[in-house]
């Protein structure tokens, strides 16, 4: 069993966990993820490893459906049935020069360990964090190590009023960038990749297709990259965003929409108002 050691709410519907998982913690590298199953009736869901220390890993979860709602309702001391990982290839590391790290929403947590390690490798790190409102720009205090931070909000409550690609454009006009990462909602990553393509900039994106096992044994997570079928869990999850068939990925994310809605409705009927979010 995998115990929740610490839990904290970062924003409405976004929660920060430290979970005891010694094997995972000892082997985790930036860019990797775990598959979590809450209890014996649960679904297996993938979550990025946002950090690790000693015997624990950090997960930052946004409630979007039945499993993530239920996960966010758990408390310190509760246990998860399964935590498997670290899965996927680690992010490519090295001294590249100037790197641009774009995080949107809960993707900010995924960008965090990669940016930190890139800094340790001696890169100049520019971070762009985006959210709908100031509250949704989570973890922004934790990026103090960065050389430059730009924040965007849809409503203008913090930083630039606009979306992350507005900030990307600003940086790309002022400065040369050697490589970029963009992690966030699929639609955000799509537009980041399109912009990067205009600037002939290599941009790593962490794809989030629906997964089951996370070990290459089901093919649910297949995506098209550079015209070839890849399994995101074992061939990725990071791919050069310029080569990804984004529209296909967006469509494939809707496969279980009907069932997801049914599951969440049934759950909310059982538990009532999700006041904990």
């Amino acid at each position: 069993m995998f115990r929740i050691l610490k839990k904290r709410r970062l924003a409405y519907g976004t929660h920060d966990f430290w979970v005891e998982a010694p094997e995972v913690a000892q082997h985790a590298q930036p860019g990797q993820f775990v598959v979590v199953r809450i209890h014996q009736y649960g679904e297996r869901i993938p979550l990025t490893i946002a950090d690790s220390a000693d015997d624990a890993i950090r997960l930052v979860v946004k409630a979007v459906g039945k499993t993530t709602y239920e996960l966010c309702s758990l408390k310190e001391g509760d246990e998860l049935a399964d935590v498997v990982g670290p899965l996927g290839h680690p992010s490519e590391m090295g001294k590249f020069g100037h790197v641009m790290m774009v995080g949107g929403g809960v993707g900010i947590a995924a960008i965090y360990p990669i940016a930190k390690k890139l800094k340790d490798h001696g890169n100049r790190v520019t971070v762009i964090l985006g959210g709908r409102t100031a509250e949704q720009v989570i973890m922004r205090d934790e990026f103090r190590f960065a050389d430059r931070i730009l924040i965007t909000t849809d409503d203008g409550s913090l930083g630039i009023k606009g979306v992350v690609t507005d900030a990307m454009k600003k940086v790309l006009e002022e400065d040369t960038v050697d490589v970029a990462w963009a992690i966030g909602p699929t639609i955000m990553m799509k537009f980041c990749a399109l912009l990067a393509k205009e600037y002939a900039l290599k941009i790593w994106t962490s794809l989030n297709p629906i997964m089951v096992d996370g070990t290459g044994m089901c093919g649910a997570c297949r995506v098209t990259v550079g015209g070839e079928i890849k399994f995101a869990c074992v061939d990725g999850p990071e791919f050069d965003g310029r080569l990804v068939d984004w529209d296909e990925l967006l469509k494939r994310l809707t496969i279980y929409q009907k069932e997801e809605k049914e599951a969440l409705e049934k759950y909310l009927k059982k538990v009532g108002e999700p006041s904990w979010l």
Partner: peptide, 29 residues
Amino acid sequence: NLIGVFSASEILTRVNLMRAYDFPNYDTP
């Protein structure tokens, strides 16, 4: 990669390992 094309492994894993035939009592669809 169209919606509706699956590997047998995915269908069987969902149904057997994850007990998806008993959705929504089990969470996996």
